[in-house]
């Protein structure tokens, strides 16, 4: 099953492989995933690329027990909204390498480049950003 076309994935590599989003210089709003148009300022906004912090804290989270196809191996897995440091945006991502009992609001996490999804045995491997608990702050 093809979830996303290969060209579509390829166009998003530079943003999916790292926390590279956009920023509206007019209203000072960050976007990740990136937006090409500011929903507030519309055509008067000025959108520029912005690299966000790899660090943040969990705002809220949930555990997934009934996954979509292709994610069976990772069950149960945690999905969290992470507020990135330096006034960064809220980002949705999986939390990995973490005991479910240790998950909590406020937990410090860092971005981790991981495999997201394999398109069957012969299709493309999708990579992207997940989050894992910080073991050593500021490193």
């Amino acid at each position: 099953m093809h979830r996303t076309s290969v060209p579509m994935l390829w166009r998003r590599f530079k943003n999916k492989y790292k926390l590279l989003g956009t920023h509206c210089e007019k209203c000072n709003t960050d976007f990740y995933p990136p937006r090409e148009l500011c929903p507030k300022c519309r055509r008067t906004g000025k959108i520029v690329e912005k690299r966000f912090s790899n660090y943040g804290a969990i705002v809220t989270y949930t555990q997934i027990y009934a996954p979509p196809a292709g994610f069976e191996k990772s069950v149960p897995y945690a999905l969290a909204i992470v507020r990135l440091d330096k006034n960064g945006p809220d980002v949705l991502g999986q939390v990995v390498d973490c005991d479910a009992k240790k998950l909590k609001i406020g937990l410090r996490v860092e971005a981790s480049f991981r495999k997201i999804y394999e398109d069957g045995k012969e299709g493309i491997i999708q990579y992207g950003i997940k989050f894992m608990p910080i073991t050593h702050e500021n490193l």
Binding site: Y17, S74, V96, S112, F113, R114, K115, I125, Y127, K130
Partner: peptide
């Protein structure tokens, strides 16, 4: 982990 491979290890 199930979502780690040579590419992800190399990137880190």
């Amino acid at each position: 982990n199930y979502d780690e491979d040579t590419a992800t290890i190399s990137v880190h």
